[in-house]
Design a protein around this nucleic acid. Structure first.
Lengths: 140, 140
DNA sequence: CTACGATCTGGAGCGAGGTCTAGATCAAGT
DNA sequence: ACTTGATCTAGACCTCGCTCCAGATCGTAG
């Protein structure tokens, strides 16, 4: 668990793809777009070798993406981290702003959910009554 | 409130845009794509006149879209409604399946939220300690 | 040595969901 | 009648976030 000297056994792009859920295409794409903190190490033959740092970062990226952070913001975040210490306040701001957006999203989804649930109820009731009720159609 | 004979005063596309939050462009696009239950009425001059039924339907569309339902599904739903009574069970299935997806989305977002919150905490703590702590950077 | 699968690069292509433009028409105010 | 602003149609265009292809190379197993 984050030992000072981890037994670093680097992973291939395919292994990282498995571990992160991103496709190998996406991994190369992310790298090209500058979404990674550092350049990925290579073997003498040019194959990518990811460290567990890379993987941890990618796992965070996945969560941020999954919650709707645009690639541009992710890139900005990566740049901040890349430029090292001194800008933690800005990183905090960035993340906190995103968290607020996530909260808003959750709220919105819950509202949608309740509308849908209501509508499901309308249909269920209608079906329970054996299609007999005069269900006003256009909106139902 | 849904009186049998509502005093129908049709709305222009601009007014509907205001009321639904969709752009006039999107409204025309939705119509072309067959996402509306019926064809929109027109004035003699060819301008669209939306009824409150249209608006109600659009408001539901907005909620479904906001919660991530693809236009294709929305179109399918509209077709079911358009074909009148008799397929309520399928409509119910469609909506219920979507509700499940929304639930999954909410769960996923909450998980993201907690990851972000944890990360925000890492930065906040770091800053509170006056930048002095040995913050391991790559992932933080 | 030979195969075969995984990876490499650069760049083209794609699907979703609109957005925007051009040029014409309509409708309301003065 | 004239001006102004909203709408009309058809169709081109755009952003986002990958995905896929071609053609070459690497590296491991037999």
């Amino acid at each position: 668990m984050t030992t000072t000297e981890a037994a670093e056994q680097p992973l291939s792009i395919g292994e990282v793809a498995e571990r992160t859920g991103l496709s190998v295409h996406a991994l190369r794409f992310y790298e090209r777009e500058g979404l990674l903190v550092g350049p990925v190490r290579r073997t003498s033959g040019g194959r990518r070798r990811y460290t567990s740092f890379d993987v941890d970062w990618l796992l965070i990226c996945v969560k941020l993406r999954e919650s709707g952070m645009p690639l541009a913001d992710l890139k900005h975040f990566a740049e901040l981290v890349r430029h090292g210490p001194g800008n933690e306040a800005e990183r905090l701001r960035l993340l906190d702003a995103h968290r607020q957006r996530v909260d808003a999203q959750i709220q919105a989804l819950e509202e949608c959910r309740s509308v849908i649930t209501w509508k499901v109820g309308v249909y269920a009731e209608h079906l329970a009554r054996g299609e007999a009720g005069g269900l006003w159609d256009p909106t139902a």
